[in-house]
Design a protein around this nucleic acid. Structure first.
Length: 516
RNA sequence: GGGCGCGUAGCCUAGCUUGGAUAGGGCAUCGGGUUCCUAACCCGGGGGUCGAGGGUUCAAAUCCCUCCGCGCCCGCCA
């Protein structure tokens, strides 16, 4: 039991207490953090590849923050997996085949003078041209959706477009419209430092024949049944699925494919490239996930994806965020609000900054506040959106962590040896606040590995807060630059904290600020 | 009705997978701290039947059962 780091082990009641060799522990921790630098807490990249599919929102309009929860959880997970040594590809599944995207094409295929009156009325308002494409092109969407419920002729027009898409002859502007809207959506996510490695278009699985191949095999699956009207289904009674019919239809009577069938094709493609396949899904997709598992099993694919399910973000009045109900809080709106508030905070305490620095800091703080606010809560917990919580810059928040990082950076700047080398003597780091701080720094690699294994991305936020919190205590209790013979060692400790805090912020996708 | 998820101080939340020491934080509240390395900070106080009940165990927020409340889903939609 006793080794290089353990000085003694004693039994106490039901516990064994280990006493660490403090100097060796301090030395090992600081050396690791300082020498490994941006790789501290990471493991070498090796081994099986992973795919993380997240966000995948229909290209029909701007993000509301309910959808953004998916993006933030997924992006953080991908970062954590990579840090834990798993080569990870993020995938955005673009649904260009469903009614949603088709409704957009339907309305924009008409000159606005031909738009049905209720839709035209709904989008009347200030000039639309300076809006982002997702906002501009997505504007009629809620009205179109409502209109189709009332108007059978329009519904039939949309159905005809869907058939054309299925046949591989989509309306001319179909994909371009989706692409343009998606571009606007991604612009917003980029402000949260969320980007994707791949965009997978649903229609591609039809075009390349993989849906057809899946179909051939599924027709001969163990529990495949043909309905009287010609539709194909799986008798899912053995899978414990709650469908009232007991069946999962995967091909319509007219021979066209259903979403879950295309998703089977997508996942087979994933399994051919990735060892670990993770889907980040809202809780409303739980049943879809189980259905997909059942179909993969019927197909003969032994693997199933790992699902990271998150609960909806609701509004205080109750209910999910709804575009139609007008209860949605848009990401762009939230960003604008967060950044302008951050700007006020910066201006209130800094008079020495040039305008461009104020803007840059405000943008980083606003984005940091939003990301942290979402990721700090376990995905399976429901979240009620409240402005005052989302815009909190104090306590357990992104800006608090960013501030602590900037504070450490400031100390190092003033130390005159910002970039090191950092020499330390463990015998000089004996204060209780110092040791507490070092213990948290030492935890980081474990936190990253555990988060990757359990997909508990919220623990990264917890760690970042704990480290920032203890650093602030240390900062108040222990002088660094004004200290005597401990000075060099304390500077090294601050450097190790800056590095670790910076690495944690990187995993959270929150910008590091050298000053704020 | 069935399936799945959630329930921890006034509010928000960690811990639950792998059961262990006085259940950690944050917001709010009350009281303090700035001639000194960034006060987006720090120190201190008050505030808890871990939804309820039962069970397993030397030991339960954590595992099992029942119940209650809330959410989601149960389409030839996506």
């Amino acid at each position: 039991m006793v080794g290089p780091l353990v000085r003694s082990a004693t039994a106490k009641g039901a516990y064994v207490n280990f006493r660490l060799d403090s100097a060796a522990f301090v030395s090992a921790t600081l050396t690791a953090a300082l020498e490994r630098g941006s790789e501290y807490g990471h493991r070498p990249v090796a081994g099986p590849m992973a795919s993380v599919e997240h966000t995948s929102a229909n290209p029909t309009g701007p993000f509301h923050i309910g959808r953004v929860r998916n993006a933030i959880i997924g992006d953080t997970l991908a970062r954590v997996l990579r840090a834990a040594g798993t080569p990870t590809t993020t995938q955005y599944y673009v649904d260009d085949m469903g009614r949603q995207a088709t409704m957009i094409t339907w309305i924009w295929s008409k000159a606005s003078s031909e738009w049905p009156e209720p839709i035209r009325r709904a989008v009347e308002g200030p000039a639309l041209t300076d809006e982002k494409p997702d906002a501009r092109l997505g504007r009629p969407y809620p009205a179109v959706s409502a209109y189709l419920k009332e108007d059978g002729t329009a519904r039939e027009e949309v159905a005809e477009l869907i058939r054309q898409i299925e046949l591989g002859t989509p309306p001319s502007r179909h994909r371009e419209l989706a692409q343009e809207i998606l571009g606007g959506m991604l612009e917003s996510l980029a402000r949260l430092h969320i980007r994707f490695d791949e965009f997978v278009w649903e229609s591609d699985f039809l075009r390349d024949g993989s849906v057809e191949r899946v179909l051939e095999r599924l027709h001969h699956a163990p529990h495949a049944v043909r309905e009287e009207n010609g539709a194909w289904a799986i008798d899912a009674s053995g899978y414990g699925l709650p469908q009232e019919s007991g069946r999962v239809v995967f091909q319509r009577a007219d021979g066209t494919s259903l979403y879950v069938l295309r998703d089977v094709a997508f996942h087979l493609a994933k399994f051919s490239r990735f060892e670990r396949v993770v889907d980040v899904l809202g809780q409303d997709h739980r049943l879809h996930a189980r259905t997909l598992d059942a179909l993969l099993h019927e197909y003969g694919e032994p693997r199933v994806p790992t699902y990271l399910i998150y609960q909806d973000i609701t509004v205080p009045e109750g209910g999910r965020m709804s575009t139609r109900g007008g209860s949605a809080v848009w990401l762009d709106q939230l960003l604008t609000e967060a950044v302008s508030r951050a700007r006020r905070e910066v201006l209130a305490r800094r008079e020495d900054l040039v305008e461009s620095d104020v803007d840059r800091i405000a943008e980083a703080v606003g984005a940091g506040a939003i990301r942290f606010h979402i990721v700090r809560v376990a995905p399976e917990k429901p979240v009620v959106f409240r402005w005052e919580d989302a815009l909190s810059f104090e306590g357990r928040s992104g800006p608090f962590v960013q501030y602590s990082y900037a504070r450490a950076a400031s100390v190092l700047r003033k130390s005159g040896s910002d970039q090191g080398p950092f020499a330390f003597d463990p015998a000089k780091l004996t204060d209780a606040e110092e040791l507490a701080l070092i213990r948290i720094v030492a935890r980081f690699p474990r936190v990253v590995a555990d988060a990757a294994r359990t997909m508990h991305v919220q623990s990264l936020a917890g760690f970042a807060h704990d480290l920032a919190d203890q650093f602030n205590r240390f900062y108040h209790a222990v002088p660094v630059l004004r200290s005597g013979e401990e000075r060099a060692s304390r500077i090294a400790l601050v450097a190790a904290v800056r590095q670790t805090l910076g690495n944690a912020l990187e995993l959270l996708g929150i910008p590091r600020l050298e000053t704020m």
